Simulated scan of single mutants.
Amino acid sequence: MPEMLKQVIDWLYVQLNNIQDVPDSPEEVEVEIEAKIGKIVNVGNGERIMMPITSPTILNQMWATGDNIRFESQMELNEHKAMNAFLNSALQASKMEERHGRVPMDYSHPKSRDSFRPLSDTGYDALPPAFRRHASEKRKDLKLRTTTNLATGEVEARIVKSKMADLHIFNPAGDYDCRISLNLEANMNLPHLAPYTDLFDEWAPGERASPDRMKDRMSYKHLVYRIDLTMVSVSKALPPKFELELEVEGQVLREQMRLMSGGEGEHAFADLVGGFLDNATFLMRQRAVA
């Protein structure tokens, strides 16, 4: 097994093991495992980090989670267009090959607005107990994110998100790096919480408010993996940002980990993580070519 794959497998195993008390129910709490494509930047000079190595490597977690670096998740417009064209061609190819037994890709193109408000004490108390246990140290940073469909005006989601851990991959052979994150997302769009106005506070005077994010997203899903190509706008006065991220279904990965841990026959944990890492590496290479 390649060393990098082994490290990612071990890291995900540890992180998922740490949240075994979280209900295995996306309707209550969803485990999000994502890989964002971008650049690892030196906080001191604002430039991409430089290291005396020539192949991709995983950064030491103690060093990476300190004040040494930050991760910038964005791409240039020409790369956004090139990636869109590539993914559209892959989508069409999968449809053509469906008759030969290939599982086709799915595509969606939602446009939405994300609004953020500080989570109130009532909102915090309404969070699932397991979510509160893991997010208690981040209480003051928790926000209620409301997602509204721009076409219909319908509220599609009310979510509270908390990051559990990050793993940074530095890729000196290309123009872009990768950050793998494991997050918890609590579903607050539940009927018994209506009318939802008690779940958040307004921004305090002088407090730096999080701006609304307008998202134009092209989403490509195949099996347990999903690739999101998103244009994000926060103000007409500022140029939009272009983001690229990959997700693997956390619930499926948790199921396979339990099979592996319990010795209950065959499991696909390593294969799923391997596919996830392969896809992330492939996306980084495609961006470099673009």
Rank of each mutant, 00 (worst) to 15 (best):
Y225K: 03
P26V: 12
G38Q: 11
N42A: 04
A151P: 05
F71W: 09
D201K: 08
D228E: 02
V41S: 14
P118H: 15
D177P: 06
L16R: 04
H109I: 06
L223T: 07
N68V: 03
E32A: 10
E247V: 01
R287F: 05
N17A: 13
K81P: 03
Q15S: 10
H168T: 07
R70E: 10
E266D: 06
L238Y: 09
P239H: 04
A157H: 05
R258D: 09
E79S: 08
I180E: 08
D10Y: 02
P172V: 04
R226H: 10
D24F: 14
A165Y: 04
D271F: 08
R70G: 11
F282Q: 06
Q251A: 00
S55T: 12
E245K: 03
A237N: 10
L193M: 02
H192G: 00
K111I: 13
W11A: 03
H192E: 13
N78I: 04
P195T: 01
M51A: 11
L190D: 10
P56A: 08
L193F: 07
Q61G: 04
F131A: 02
V160I: 05
D166A: 09
S73Q: 10
Q20S: 05
K163D: 14
K95W: 12
L244R: 07
E249G: 08
F131Y: 07
E243I: 04
